[in-house]
């Protein structure tokens, strides 16, 4: 059995494997498939609860992943934001002495969530300028005011 605590190394190696087979397009194809097939829970939560669906989704996942973060939801302003102070996934890869992090590893967070949120009427912004320190920010904004 592969433990769920070993998934991030598996994810990293999968990106590397796909890149070896078909370059970044092959990796992108997988991210799109994963977004469509796996992130149904985020899609359902946001479709049902609006921006608060983001809060509900990441409240569970980030705590289970033991992330170091600040998360804010301002429903009136229509903004949801995560300031990731230490991403548990990237940190594991950076700290590993025997794994080689996939160079575009963090881009999956841009592709996967954007693909869910934009069709639901939200803008999605992902700042990956400090991912070499396992730091990033994610901002979701409602495009139209609530009815």
């Amino acid at each position: 059995m592969i433990s769920c605590t070993e998934f991030i190394p598996a994810y990293n190696e999968l990106f590397r494997y796909l890149d070896q087979r078909g370059g970044t397009n092959a990796v992108q194809g997988f991210w799109e498939f994963l977004s469509d097939r796996f992130l149904t829970n985020l899609r359902d939560l946001v479709a049902t609860h609006g921006l608060k669906g983001c809060w509900l989704y990441w409240s569970r996942t980030l705590n289970e992943e033991a992330a170091d973060f600040v998360m804010e939801l301002d429903e009136e302003a229509g903004i949801f934001r995560i300031e990731m102070r230490r991403c548990p996934s990237k940190r594991r890869l950076l700290e590993s002495t025997h794994l080689q992090p996939y160079p575009h590893y963090c881009r999956h967070c841009d592709v996967l969530y954007r693909r869910v949120l934009e069709p639901l009427g939200y803008s999605y912004e992902f700042d990956d300028s400090k991912t070499d320190q396992a730091v990033c920010t994610l901002t979701v904004r409602r495009k139209t005011p609530p009815a």
Binding site: C4, T5, F7, I8, W55, S59, T61, L62, N63, E64, E65, A66, A67, D68, F69, V70, M71, E72, L73, D74, E75, E76, R86, P88
Partner: peptide
């Protein structure tokens, strides 16, 4: 409402079964 959550890595065990 305005909601805010702040966590340190040490606040939670690492076990995310969705993986």
């Amino acid at each position: 409402s305005l909601l805010r959550m702040e966590r340190r890595a040490s606040d939670n065990p690492y076990l995310h079964k969705d993986f």
